[in-house]
Design a protein around this nucleic acid. Structure first.
Lengths: 144, 144
DNA sequence: CCATCGAACCGAACAGAATTCGGCAAATCT
DNA sequence: AGATTTGCCGAATTCTGTTCGGTTCGATGG
């Protein structure tokens, strides 16, 4: 993981569709060497996969909310219960008064309410506190 | 935006590196037609870009935290101030007692503290409340 | 100190994919 | 109904991914 690797990751985050030749020129390598570097970055798990960045509003997920989930039991084994709710994009165990923090995207506030209902149905969940996002400043890739 | 488009977006989220031929076979189209569909999805902004999914821990961002930012002024024009802090991955205006919610990734809790310091330096910021993530259940693509 | 080994690179060759295009059929508009 | 647009197929063309032999360079150890 040297400077060249970091430069490659950075550039691939910005555009994973460019050719290895272009990528190589940008970092000062041949296409072949670039290909080999990227292959190893995948192998090591630094690069998990190549994907697309989708506009949430365009696919019916215009409402974004974060929900603090309170519980009266250990939630460490409940990952599957949260994963079973497709509108949940992220779920994390947190330190603090609440136990779990989830990121939810829905088409409407009515659907958000329905997600809250399904959250309450999870074993151990004793309460929720939803924070609706009014406007997103930005969502961007990791720093390097 | 019909069922085929949705299927394409779904599959591209899972693997943006596959060939148009494979993608086409999966949805019942030729490579050429698939290419054209995807081109239009980009054109319409449904697909914003193709990128890579990077392991945060592998690039020195093993600590994840969400920070509620309180303010004593309208924060609607402060996007650039937040964007100037590279460790901030997301920033949103929210409804509720706090004004802004930011997602922060750092290499250590010391660096997290430093980010909080820089947040306080932003004009109008009157307080912060950080929630450290102990363990992430999952972070996944949008539902369709 | 020098021989050996391995890692990383280059440049070229080959295989495979992206991209373009003519022709056709179905849907849409007039 | 006629005209127009849209979306598709399949093949041709061009560009890219991927592989490979040969070379350099630094580390290893005899």
């Amino acid at each position: 993981m040297d400077d060249i690797d970091r430069a490659l990751v950075l550039r691939l985050q910005q555009d994973a569709g460019q050719s290895y030749a272009a990528l190589g020129t940008a970092v000062g390598l041949s296409a072949g060497a670039t290909h080999e570097r990227v292959r190893k970055l995948r192998e090591r798990g630094v690069i998990r996969r190549t994907t697309i960045d989708v506009d949430p509003a365009a696919v019916g997920s215009g409402v974004l909310a974060y929900v603090m989930v309170d519980s009266n039991a250990w939630m460490g084994e409940s990952a599957d219960d949260f994963a079973a709710i497709p509108e949940i994009q992220e779920a994390h165990i947190i330190a603090g008064s609440a136990s779990v923090l989830v990121k939810v995207r829905t088409a409407s506030t009515e659907q958000l309410q329905d997600v809250l209902r399904r959250l309450y149905a999870i074993d151990g969940v004793s309460g929720t506190h939803a924070t609706v996002v009014l406007d997103s400043f930005f969502e961007r890739p990791l720093p390097l």
